[in-house]
Design a protein around this nucleic acid. Structure first.
Lengths: 188, 188
DNA sequence: ATACTCATGTAAGAAGTTACATGATTAC
DNA sequence: GTAATCATGTAACTTCTTACATGAGTAT
């Protein structure tokens, strides 16, 4: 069975019971999006494909006059999810514009590198703030299923590591480039 | 000027003198590919577009009967590169299949999570080995331009952090799930 | 009333990968 | 001679994002 990478996010999100496409998108945005994103434009067509392949089943469950289709895993779908979990991971991709800019910092005036590091740091701090916002909910759910919280902590701790790296790199650049502070003019 | 994200890799790679599309690809594979990849299918068409936009200039420089077009930055291209360096980074995307599997590990039998962590660790170790292979070359070039080496060290150190995290997470899971080792059968 | 959330879907396009085709030069 | 490297390019395809269209229910 050849499935698109995003198909497994959907199968995984259905592991604990039926959900609509809208709910899957919501769950992704509150959890996996930091290391595996998915948009409506992927989710809805993929749900249709998975249903055709017999891995999920859609059931119409309107709320009043508001239509809604909840999908649940079939046995074949659960089996496919397990087989995927058995295989070693392949994709590990990073797309980091801040690092790219730092790589090319030699093309700018001296001092630009420090600005680039600070800007990168700011971007990571924003990401970290978003992760911290969802932390209490993930922590509360950890007693039922500890893994989403474990992964969230990975996100938080790795962001903290990046911020610390930025500080170190900044200090190193400042130290080699300009004179050390020691502004003891008052004494002289 | 609206440029594709990959356009800036090309402009950046030309910062220290002319290069052919083939050489740019080579440089990317030996450096930025760990946080910003690019394929021939992007590089060659993009070089044509950049030349039309006046940001690079192509010069035919055949080696014997082997055709070769070396591109160099124009003043406008260098200016565009500097303006991009001035803007704060936007993209910071991760696509980590190992984390996704760990997130869904509750759908598999207990003990699978440890296997998933070990597999993730192996993948990072492979990446780290590739980075260490290019380290001596990057270190040697650091006296002329320190930034590529700085970024490489980021790659190496962050990989080491991930490996350490995997060890910690593994120990934690083993600790809560099964009894601690203490196989003192010989005493009893 | 009006804004927000729930809900589904598609169309267009950007971005990126893979595979292929071609051909010269160089190293063994 | 044959394998590797240098070198350019395209076509087909997959993936993903963005924007749009539609419409019902809910809270203010």
């Amino acid at each position: 069975m050849e499935l698109s990478p995003t198909a497994y996010v959907i199968l995984g999100m259905l592991r604990n019971g039926p959900q609509s496409g809208y709910e899957i998108k919501r769950a992704v945005d509150h959890s996996t999006r930091f290391f595996w994103a998915a948009s409506y434009g992927q989710i809805y067509p993929e749900l249709t494909r998975l249903a055709k392949a017999g891995l999920v089943e859609g059931h119409s469950q309107p709320t009043g006059g508001r239509r809604r289709t909840a999908y649940r895993l079939t046995d074949a779908g659960r089996e496919e999810l397990r087989r995927w979990l058995d295989r070693p991971p392949e994709r590990l991709e990073l797309r980091d514009e801040g690092l790219l800019k730092l790589f090319f910092a030699g093309a700018a005036e001296p001092g630009k590198a420090v600005e680039i590091i600070d800007a990168k740091r700011r971007l990571v701090e924003e990401k970290l703030a978003a992760l911290r916002k969802i932390e209490p909910y993930a922590a509360a759910a950890a007693s039922t299923d500890p893994f989403p919280y474990l992964v969230l902590r990975y996100g938080i701790e790795s962001s903290e590591w990046v911020i610390a790296w930025c500080e170190r790199a900044r200090a190193e650049l400042k130290g080699t480039r300009s004179k050390p502070k020691k502004t003891k003019r008052s004494v002289a």
